[in-house]
Computed example of a mutant assay.
Amino acid sequence: MKTFYEFFAGGGMARIGLGKGWECVFANDFDPKKAISYRTYFRGNDHFVVEDVAKIQTSQLLGTADLTWASFPCQDLSLAGNGAGIAGERSGAFWPFWNVITKLRKEGRAPKTIILENVYGTVTSHDGKDLSIIIEELVKAGYRCGPMVIDAVLFLPHSRPRLFIIAIHNTLEVPKRLVGAPDPRWHPDALGLSYDLLSETARASWLWWNLPVPKPRTTTFSDMVENEPKGVEWHTPFETNRIIGMMSPINLEKLSQAKKAGKRVVGTIYKRTRKDKEGIKRQRAEVRFDDIAGCLRTPSGGSSRQIIILVEGNKVKTRLLSPREAARLMGLPESYHLPEKYNDAYHLAGDGVAVPVVRHIAKNIIEQVLNANKSAMRCAA
């Protein structure tokens, strides 16, 4: 059984994605509401510590983990954030987390592999400087690493591109088949911003991961929409018309085409602030009918919540995305117990990592590395 630590664990989506072949020996998050859902699903878990990561002691972490997963806060790195980067109040939580890893290293217990996950904005934050700083820290600590951008839409009907920095300790061999040349499917040109800023040593330790493309997705957003949603109600006709009134001509044309489709059409709407022709900022309702949900966000800091729009001929209905629908978009199982309050449930889902993406990375990179080295050690013995 492979072991792992789960920092910034939230509702435990990384743990669910890793699967039954992995044993969690430490989990941490400062949010007690998420902790309730985590413990309910995993039936207790004595290893979950509800605490600020800055107060975590290495004595609380058992053994030497095969993997450390850390989805550190994204607010200061998000494209919609304040631009503070990893020096910010929230995303700066990376540093106390890294202090824990540094102490483990001094104790001779450095994790064999590390995965850091965050929003795409991390790639371009401060013109690549923030990502380059993180890479340099990993290399100094004895890791070879490579960043990748993976969109959950490959697995789920949910547009959610995220950065994954996958690091392997220098004491482990990396099978040659797992690395290669940059692949535009995983390595956008923007990664060059950080690569160019790296020291010569860090560049030499940069890995271009060779990740297989998953089988074509068969599910659509419509498949996940509830006919009788729990936790939300359909808007009144007045409210629906008010939302339609916020649409630009382009979005109104999309709605018009959906009405002419001659079938039930499900779409999503986000409210966004845009400048009009006169340069005045106005709130707009932007709709998409491609059977893919927009990226889930947490309902805090002024972020809008995703709205479902159902079109059947000239009949149009709208409502908020339900908590269970949000959970499905993240790949959570139907048996997962969500918080009772809408905002708490939506926050848990919107603040997590897509479950099947975790499984894909674990299966095709982390487990490949660990299994190869286990075989090598058996042969040596």
Rank of each mutant, 00 (worst) to 15 (best):
L338Y: 04
A354K: 03
F48R: 06
A285N: 07
R297E: 11
N251P: 00
T40C: 05
T102P: 00
F94C: 08
I86Y: 00
G142Q: 01
R272K: 15
R328Y: 06
Y270A: 13
D189N: 09
S303L: 11
L198Y: 03
N210R: 15
F8H: 06
I133W: 13
H347T: 15
T68Y: 00
G83N: 11
L332Y: 15
R324V: 10
V232Q: 12
D223H: 12
G88C: 12
V265A: 10
T273A: 11
P299F: 03
G192W: 03
K315A: 13
V149Y: 03
A258P: 08
V50Q: 07
G142W: 00
V49I: 14
M13I: 00
G128K: 04
K259P: 14
A261L: 12
L338H: 03
Y195Q: 07
P96W: 05
T268P: 14
C145Q: 01
S199L: 06
K317S: 13
T298D: 10
D196Y: 01
P339N: 10
P188W: 15
L332R: 04
N373E: 11
E226C: 01
L18A: 01
P175A: 10
R284I: 14
K176P: 08
R160N: 14
D223F: 12
P157F: 09
A293F: 09
T171D: 15
V358R: 02
S132C: 07
K260P: 00
K341G: 00
L329E: 01
W22I: 13
G302T: 08
F7C: 11
P184T: 13
L198Q: 05
L348R: 08
K140C: 04
V179L: 11
I243Q: 08
T273P: 04
V265D: 04
P161I: 06
A27W: 06
A362T: 05
W186E: 07
L320H: 11
P356L: 04
